[in-house]
Write a protein that binds this DNA or RNA. Structure first.
Lengths: 127, 127
DNA sequence: TCAGGACATCGACGTACGTCGAAACAATCC
DNA sequence: GGATTGTTTCGACGTACGTCGATGTCCTGA
């Protein structure tokens, strides 16, 4: 029955090639951002611009090893599908990567992207 | 006529008492954010989560002295009311302060808040 | 006092977003 | 294979958000 699946649905969700999401973060202070640069950078900030996503991100970042499985961080007051939706947003923004290990899926913060966003702001504050 | 105005409409828009907007930024990595902390912090990230606002912010940050009048930064492809709306959002988030000087209104980046947001991310990346 | 420029507010419109329950998918255990 | 648990996807719903034109407010200069 249905031997041909329409989509294989990657078993391990890829970390999202970093280039696509963030060629990253041209300085905010050196010159005004172009429309394209702003579009790409805004995606990352928008991802952290929701209370639930911020709590999920914080829960993962503060978990030992900087990673946590979904089951560890689902106590944020919304339904489980909603948690999954938000984690997907964070992953698409390049801030998290995920990997399935047996029954559970583990999410991990993507240090390079986070650090780049931080530098961006630090430099803007120093200007 | 109408000698009694309903609202005085502050001549100089205040920098927004910093406490209200950000008692600021508890570490993302030390422990999971509470609901309230996430709510307050998300406002700041959300403010930078729009391409037009990011371009306005960058235009101000990259302008000499870290400040610019609205007339200097209105070339972002949206109408004047929309620019005003976005600047208000950034100010309400505590990221900008504004001051009227004669005919023009000058916006300036609020270094302490921006720096705090940056530290937040840097620490999360280092975890 | 009045005209004009700079900026903010108002009200309305369309779209994007957060949320949920139901259902599909994946791995494990019996 | 079937039941069970963990996670994602789907479809639908209400609300929040970005955008605009029209209008109001504040300041300046004649």
């Amino acid at each position: 029955m249905s031997t041909a699946k329409v989509l294989p649905l990657a078993k391990v969700l890829p970390p999202l090639e970093p280039e696509a999401v963030a060629p990253c973060c041209p300085s905010l202070t050196e010159r005004p951002l172009t429309s394209d640069e702003a579009e790409r950078t805004a995606v990352m900030f928008k991802a952290l611009g929701d209370p639930v996503r911020l709590r999920l991100f914080s829960a993962i970042a503060s978990h030992e090893g900087g990673e946590a499985c979904v089951c560890d961080i689902s106590d944020v007051g919304v339904s489980q599908p909603t948690v999954s939706h938000h984690l997907k947003k964070l992953r698409e923004a390049g801030l998290l990567s995920s990997e399935r290990r047996g029954t559970w899926v583990y999410y991990r913060v993507e240090p390079s992207v986070i650090a780049a966003m931080g530098q961006l702001l630090i430099r803007a504050a120093a200007a």
